[in-house]
Nucleic acid binder design. Structure first.
Lengths: 354, 354
DNA sequence: CTTTAGCACTCGGATAGCAAGAGTGCTAAA
DNA sequence: TTTAGCACTCTTGCTATCCGAGTGCTAAAG
């Protein structure tokens, strides 16, 4: 079932030409592209074989060939040349990583934009569920007499805050007290460990206060919970319209609105399937989601610390420049891993000044 | 130059029909819609007048009429009935406001999504430049020996954070010291007041530390600076494709990519022009941005506290359901104002009505 | 002076037919 | 196995034609 060398050459020519032009490729065009010393008739015979075997398709009898998903698959697995990024490109990515990724909880947003801009495809980023997340620190900051801001820092260095208003006034010392209480009783606990029992005890220790402890702790629980669900961000959906396969508005719209249902998207990705490889390409019908059956998805995973993984990906027509996209994606993913890694492991590079 | 009552009725019928159907309206159709007891010929005469005067346009000789921007303008100013939201709608909005608007710095994002979903148009939100923003509070939280997270809270209750890494180890007490130093020296200062002079003094007072003060303070300055530029968020751009005027992909793409240049968008909006009214409608060529010349924009302003204003808006074809959109937008804007208001004033100054 | 009926006219959109061009598949020979 | 040649298929673009919607105008009626 192995293809001859020549067939592979031809398949490759078809794929690469089609990726560039989005036009079916005919036998004559292949002649030049593949640099084979045979006639177009020979190529036609080969094409017929490849079509027979399911690697190519014909939009209609008298058109050239386009790759089938199976054809792309073979191409990606065996024929594709790894793409090296230019120095300029890596420089650009590095710069963006350093410039934009200051606040860890905005990372997925920014990373999405960046990738989308880099690849000209819509991108999405998800930060995997951190099942065992805990709070590392509480801070309460008085705003005025009757309200304060609760800030929690999780062990994955995500900072979240909420404005909490009270029916009564509150003093700075009271808040201090609460803060230390919170920091002694609730830090390092996972969601499950934050039992009502524990809260009752603390509430009691705090004395007076109006269920303040539970207000703050339930906020903390919300945060932990939200980290449990994977966070999703999509960006650059408008790039869909750049590609001729979506000149039909109906199609474009379907895909776009699917992408904006971020939860559905997250669900449909076979994250476990990523396994140990750090990039994965899903071609057309290989996608589980019905809406993605005639698009391709390129995924790259990044380490989020604690053995947790996040995923970054782009969506595009099956006629996608897999090599380039995979290269970029994987470079960004590495960058993200380092970014998160830095936070965890001690010695790194010195921070640049401003 | 006043139009007769009948002309107004006809204009109104044209606008409203066209808003619904996106099809040019003919004289016969108007008969039924406007409920006038005249013949179609009479209507045609009136239509000719209205076209003459620039309120209507004809796509081509043998088509019906569509409203011109001038026609829409008249409609919006005089003919449009204010739309009341249904109880269900207000309930829905209120719920979303309470549910989603916990973190103040995520508000503009969430508000955008919400409005876009509510109106089926792409939406954007900008939080006006807070020129005089100050820091209200610093917190430094140790992550591990050589890194910590700086959290700053601004006077507009925005919380921002950054992970800062050091070439040396740091102890909890040291951080404590720094924190109080920061909170005594730099709180309540505007961007301009955070002079190098001030930093030098504080740095000196802090003794040892590796320019730590300036690291944190320059982060704070970045934050203040970023609040100075207006923050922009766009959402729901895919809704553009819902409307038949964008069945042409080229057009849709242009608009989309314009919307994603958030800075340009923010620049182009005539915010001052909003003046005291709290909603404003810009029809077609009334927009300054070239890219919006054949779209309409509905804006509503909300109070962000401190006399500062933010703006929330949607973009759509000139054939937009102005009444409904304006109603929803203004309701959301009010909600936002209250949200911010809550944070700021205990019931000091009453809400402005109208 | 306004309204109306009647009618010719215009233009866009749909449909069909036709010619050109691209690319194939097949056959028969090298 | 490869190649040349050729008939065949199917798309694309163009043109012609028809149909209908809706107008604008005129002349008569209120």
């Amino acid at each position: 079932m192995e293809l001859t060398e020549r067939k592979k050459k031809i398949l490759r020519a078809v794929v690469e030409s089609y990726i560039r032009t989005a036009e079916p490729v005919g036998s004559k065009a292949i002649l030049e592209l593949a640099g084979l010393n045979v006639s177009s008739a020979t190529i036609r015979n080969e094409l017929a074989d490849l079509t027979e075997q399911g690697y190519l398709e014909q939009p209609h009898t008298s058109a050239g060939r386009i790759p089938s998903p199976k054809g792309y698959r073979l191409y990606v697995n065996e024929l594709m040349q790894e793409q090296r990024l230019s120095l300029e490109e890596t420089r650009q990515i590095n710069e963006a990583l350093h410039l934009k990724m200051q606040e860890l909880d905005k990372v997925i947003d920014q990373a999405g934009r960046m990738v989308s801009q880099l690849t000209n495809y819509p991108a999405f980023v998800l930060a995997g569920n951190a099942r065992r997340a805990t709070i590392r620190r509480f801070e309460l900051i008085l705003v005025d007499g009757s309200s304060f801001i609760a800030v929690v820092l999780t062990d994955s260095n995500v900072v979240r805050n909420k404005l909490i208003r009270l029916p009564v006034d509150l003093s700075e010392p009271q808040l201090q007290l609460l803060t230390t209480l919170l920091n002694t009783s609730f830090v390092g606990k996972t969601l499950e460990e934050l039992t009502p029992e524990l809260m009752r005890v603390a509430e009691h220790a705090a004395g007076s206060s109006y269920g303040l402890i539970s207000l703050v702790v339930s906020f903390a629980m919300e945060v932990l919970e939200s980290l449990g669900h994977s966070a999703v961000a999509t960006a650059g959906t408008s790039h869909i319209l750049d590609h001729p396969e979506y000149r039909d508005v109906g199609k474009a719209q379907k895909l776009m609105s699917y992408l904006s249902e971020e939860q559905a998207l997250a669900q449909s990705l076979p994250l476990p399937a990523l396994g140990d490889e750090n990039t994965k390409i899903l071609i057309g019908p290989e996608n589980v989601a019905e809406e993605l059956k005639d698009t391709s998805v390129v995924l790259a995973s990044y380490d989020i610390g604690d053995g947790m993984k996040g995923v970054i990906g782009v969506v595009g027509p099956t006629r996608m420049d897999y090599a380039k996209v995979a290269a970029k994606l994987s470079y960004v993913a590495d960058g993200l891993s380092k970014l998160f890694g830095q936070a965890e492991l001690p010695p790194g590079k010195p921070e640049k000044e401003e």
